[in-house]
């Protein structure tokens, strides 16, 4: 949209407003006596998200039920998309997926299984066992540090991460862009 703020109905009376000084209550200039919350536009420096496929220009196809990635791509100044595979042919808007045009994407990185431990559309489901392992580890300071060491700081690369979580890196289809 590019608007400096959004006028939001319905937030008034929430304690959220006392903890979020960036959200202000203003009068609705078009409706006598009515108030709305002015929420400033969020402009991230960088957005990173995972998609199914992208071509070498940056045209991206996202699958799955939650498709707010388009909004994220538009809001951020720089956009990095990790994908399951690089498409050989130029991608076009298609039925059954969400299309993000190359103009909104700055970098594409081929990272198969990159959404783990969450899922990626029809490609693979969330890894419930690993998410449970994370939840248990996150309950304590020491176990959480051990988790970070094993899965975040420890792995040499993405392939090493995948083998630590019990998955093998698949051969990349297509070429890296």
């Amino acid at each position: 949209m590019g608007a400096p703020f959004a006028a939001v109905r319905g937030l008034l009376g929430s304690d959220l407003l006392t903890h979020r000084p960036d959200m202000r209550v203003i009068g609705d200039p078009f409706q006598e006596g009515a108030s709305v919350v002015a929420a400033p536009a969020i402009r991230p420096d960088v957005a990173v998200f995972h998609a199914t496929r992208a071509d070498r220009f940056g045209n991206t196809l996202v699958s799955g039920a939650l498709r707010d990635d388009v909004m994220l791509a538009r809001a951020a100044r720089r956009v990095v998309v990790t994908v399951e595979e690089i498409a050989e042919k130029e991608l076009r808007p298609a039925a059954g997926g969400t299309f993000i045009p190359a103009i909104d994407v700055d970098r594409v990185v081929c990272v198969p299984r990159g959404a783990h431990p969450t899922g990626c559309g029809k490609r693979y489901a969330p890894d419930g066992d690993h998410i449970r392992e994370y939840l248990e580890a996150a309950a304590g300071e020491g176990t959480f540090r051990a988790y970070l060491e094993k899965y975040v700081h420890g792995p040499r690369d993405h392939g090493d991460y995948l083998s630590r979580v019990g998955l093998r890196a698949r051969r990349k289809r297509g070429r890296d862009a």
Partner: peptide, 15 residues
Amino acid sequence: DFVTAAGVPPEGVAR
């Protein structure tokens, strides 16, 4: 403990 959303909103709020 925390009012996420109020049952009774402040006066003058369209709802």
